[in-house]
């Protein structure tokens, strides 16, 4: 373990690429919501509910939730990789982050689909 072999682990590119792609998805979703608000979707509870429960909006919201959680996974894992050195603590934090994000995603999807 001390003399780490200096060779690539053959992964890392996908995470980096996913972070960029999910970032773009989130920007697009933010623009759609902003556009909806400008057109008055936030005027009342009923209009907001109508906006968010439209078929296409449910699809887009689902994509947003998945992107947000995936993006957060890469970003938070980056923080653990940067600052946490002991492998045991790092692995524990990775698992806790992953479990929390999966839980949040499930919860969010449940809310969106209940509309």
């Amino acid at each position: 373990m001390v003399n780490r072999k200096i060779v690539g682990a053959h992964y890392g590119l996908m995470d980096w690429l996913v972070q960029r792609i999910t970032g773009v998805v989130m920007v697009v979703f933010t623009l759609i919501v902003a556009l909806g608000l400008i057109q008055g979707a936030g005027a009342s509870y009923e209009s907001w509910r109508g906006f968010m429960s439209a078929g296409l909006m449910r699809f887009v919201s689902f994509l947003f939730i998945v992107s947000l959680c995936w993006h957060a996974w890469v970003g938070v894992r980056d923080i653990w990789m940067d600052y946490i050195q002991p492998a045991g603590i790092k692995l524990t934090l990775h698992v806790l982050t992953l479990l929390a994000l999966i839980g949040y995603a499930g919860w969010a999807v449940q809310i969106i689909w209940r509309l």
């Binding site: 200096i6 060779v7 690539g8 682990a9 053959h10 992964y11 890392g12 990789m81 940067d82």
Partner: peptide
Amino acid sequence: LDNLEDPYRLFRCH
């Protein structure tokens, strides 16, 4: 490129 494709070796650059 294989040698650098690694979450630490290259992708620690933010």
